[in-house]
């Protein structure tokens, strides 16, 4: 498989995953805010913080309100991670890899891109947002489903898996970080237990993990359990452990993967063990940050190994 095609397929999968997770986090975030006690000081701007988009956001907007945050995350072309930008990147990458991806992908991606463009206002206004985002999520899943049932398990497929899992690992760390950030805002009073439960439930839902979590843990939603599930569960497809293990499988099937493999192994070893962390606070956030740095290094290692970005 051509290095350039491999790189584009990888990015197509990453951006599609990003589009879906952006849409999902917005569908549940308002519910979180409605449910939390007024005194918990958590706003829409937190979504900008957890995605490390403060600088870009502040360059464009001075008011950190719901409308601006949603606009920035959905429709802003200057935000490279917005839904619109993600779809544009998916489309450009699919457009240039149509010879290795099922041809229907191109039609579906076009449909979705047009839908997003035509209905963006709906997504920004609060009353129709849910329907809009729901349609986006379904369309993303339709594309992934199309790949899953149709693609030969060849190099293109491996590249999709690689991109999807790296993006997922990244998104899971960000969602966990968001959870911890919110928890730290909760004051120790009579409402605290309830507020924490709401926040962790929200983190689970934003990763489509609520039902699997309950089945796996047979427990009510408690912070330490949620954290260890989302980091260390071996079966849940968005847990860090699962994503890294999946990438190891993929790397094992691809040529010249020695360096990549050792990076993946050391990341897996560094993940906190299955024992429940006593306290999730700023130390834990530092650890999440280290994981994100490691994920960035992994990407660089993929790039060097398979995408031949430097001239020979």
């Amino acid at each position: 498989m051509l290095s350039k095609v491999a790189e584009r397929v990888y990015w197509a999968a990453r951006y599609l995953e990003r589009a879906e997770s952006t849409a999902r986090i917005l569908t549940i975030y308002d519910k979180l805010l409605f449910d939390l006690p007024r005194r918990v000081n958590l706003g829409w701007y937190n979504l900008i913080v957890i995605n490390s988009l403060e600088a870009d956001f502040n360059e464009r907007y001075s008011v950190r309100d719901e409308r601006n945050v949603v606009k920035f995350l959905l429709g802003d072309e200057s935000n490279p991670s917005s839904l619109v930008s993600s779809m544009k990147a998916v489309r450009e990458n699919i457009r240039t890899t149509r010879d290795v991806i099922p041809p229907e992908t191109w039609e579906l991606v076009n449909e979705l891109t047009m839908y997003v463009q035509d209905n963006l206002a709906q997504g920004i206004s609060r009353s129709n947002r849910y329907e809009f985002l729901d349609n986006v999520i379904k369309a993303c899943q339709q594309i992934v489903g199309l790949w899953y049932v149709n693609m030969p398990r060849d190099a293109a497929w491996e590249m999709l898996l690689l991109g999807q899992n790296l993006e997922r690992a990244d998104s899971t760390t960000r969602n966990l970080d968001a959870g911890v950030a919110a928890i730290m805002q909760v004051e120790d009073d009579d409402f605290a237990v309830n507020a924490r439960q709401i926040i962790w439930g929200n983190v689970l839902r934003s990763l489509n993990a609520e039902q699997p979590f309950r089945r796996a843990t047979r427990s009510s939603v408690k912070g330490p359990l949620v954290v260890s599930y989302l980091i260390g569960d071996e079966f849940f497809p968005r847990s860090l452990h699962y994503c890294v293990a999946e990438m190891m499988d993929v790397a094992g099937r691809l040529p010249h993967s020695k360096e990549v493999m050792s990076g993946l192994k050391s990341l897996l070893n560094d993940l906190p063990g299955s024992e429940e962390p006593e306290e999730v606070g700023s130390e834990f956030r530092d650890m999440l940050n280290d994981i994100q740095v490691a994920l960035g290094d992994l990407h660089a290692s993929f790039s060097k190994t398979w995408f031949m970005s430097e001239p020979l």
Binding site: M1, L2, S3, K4, A6, A155, L254, P255, H256, W306, F307, M308, L312
Partner: peptide, 8 residues
């Protein structure tokens, strides 16, 4: 030669 994920 073309540049592929497995080399040239």
């Amino acid at each position: 030669y073309m540049k592929t994920i497995a080399g040239l």
